[in-house]
């Protein structure tokens, strides 16, 4: 018996989820074998990487760069492929 798991009484009715966007807690970052690395000297902060990311895994820093959110980035490589300045390269995880 898994006693730490909730009883039927504890689930919300019909399993309706009341925490919008709770997927954000999920670490989809551990799916990746390659991660994007930005060369800030080449980046012109255009935002193309951001708008093409299927995982909304980039966010703007105070300096106006788009930083990769490695907790969510699945390593698809779209940002690197789409960057017109070739400012992003995909490197092996662990390197």
């Amino acid at each position: 018996m898994a006693e730490d798991k909730p009883s039927w009484k504890e689930y919300p009715m019909a399993a309706t989820i009341h925490s919008p966007g709770s997927a954000t807690d999920q670490n989809t970052g551990d799916w990746k074998s390659m991660r994007p690395v930005r060369d800030s000297s080449k980046c012109d902060k255009c935002g193309i990487c951001w708008i093409f990311c299927p995982d909304a895994a980039l966010y703007m820093t105070e300096e106006g760069f788009y930083e990769v959110d490695l907790y969510h980035c699945k390593g698809c490589g779209i940002c690197a492929h789409e960057c017109r300045k070739e400012a992003i390269t995909m490197v092996e995880e662990g390197e």
Partner: peptide, 21 residues
């Protein structure tokens, strides 16, 4: 008050939700 109605129910909770119903 956004809610998600009719999500995917994995085996871990499907039985409990049916019991509830």
């Amino acid at each position: 008050k956004p809610v998600t109605m009719g999500p995917v129910g994995f085996p871990e909770l499907y039985t409990e939700i049916k019991k509830q119903q």
